[in-house]
Computed example of a mutant assay.
Amino acid sequence: MDPETMASKKREQRRQLRAGRAAIYAGEGGRARRAQEAQQLLEHAEPLIASVETAVVAARQAGTAMPLVACFHPTPTEADVMPLAHRLAQTGARLVFPAADAGTELEWISWDGTSEFQDSPGRGFGREPQGKRLGVGALHEVMLVLAPAVAVDRSATRIGHGAGYYDRALATIPESALVVAVVHPSELLEEGSLVRGEHDVPIPRVLTADGLVSLITSERA
Rank of each mutant, 00 (worst) to 15 (best):
D2S: 13
D2C: 12
E4I: 14
T5V: 13
M6G: 03
A7W: 00
S8L: 14
S8A: 15
E12A: 15
Q13M: 14
Q13V: 02
A19Y: 05
A22T: 08
Y25C: 02
G30V: 04
R31V: 07
R33F: 01
R34M: 08
Q36N: 11
Q40K: 13
Q40T: 12
E43Y: 14
H44S: 01
E53S: 13
T54G: 15
T54Y: 06
T54I: 11
A55Y: 06
A55T: 12
V56F: 07
V56P: 10
V57N: 08
A58H: 06
A59R: 07
A62H: 12
M66A: 15
M66N: 11
V69E: 01
C71E: 01
C71L: 10
P76V: 02
T77E: 14
T77Y: 05
E78A: 12
D80K: 00
M82F: 05
M82Y: 04
P83G: 05
H86P: 01
R87I: 00
A89V: 02
A89G: 12
G92S: 10
A93V: 09
R94F: 04
V96T: 01
F97W: 02
A100L: 14
A100P: 06
D101S: 10
A102E: 14
T104A: 13
T104G: 05
L106H: 00
D112K: 00
D112I: 03
D112C: 04
G113K: 00
F117N: 00
D119V: 10
P121V: 07
G122R: 06
R123S: 10
G126S: 07
P129M: 00
Q130A: 09
K132V: 13
R133Y: 04
R133D: 10
G135W: 03
L139R: 07
E141S: 15
L144F: 06
V150R: 10
A151M: 06
V152I: 14
D153V: 06
R154G: 07
S155G: 15
T157I: 08
I159C: 03
G162F: 08
A163D: 08
A163L: 05
G164D: 02
D167W: 09
A169M: 05
A177L: 03
L178I: 11
V180F: 13
V182G: 02
V183T: 12
P185W: 02
E187C: 11
G192C: 08
G192E: 13
V195C: 11
V195L: 14
G197W: 02
H199C: 01
V201N: 04
P202C: 09
T208V: 05
A209D: 03
A209Y: 02
G211P: 05
V213D: 12
I216F: 06
I216P: 03
S218N: 15
R220C: 07
A221E: 15
A221P: 03
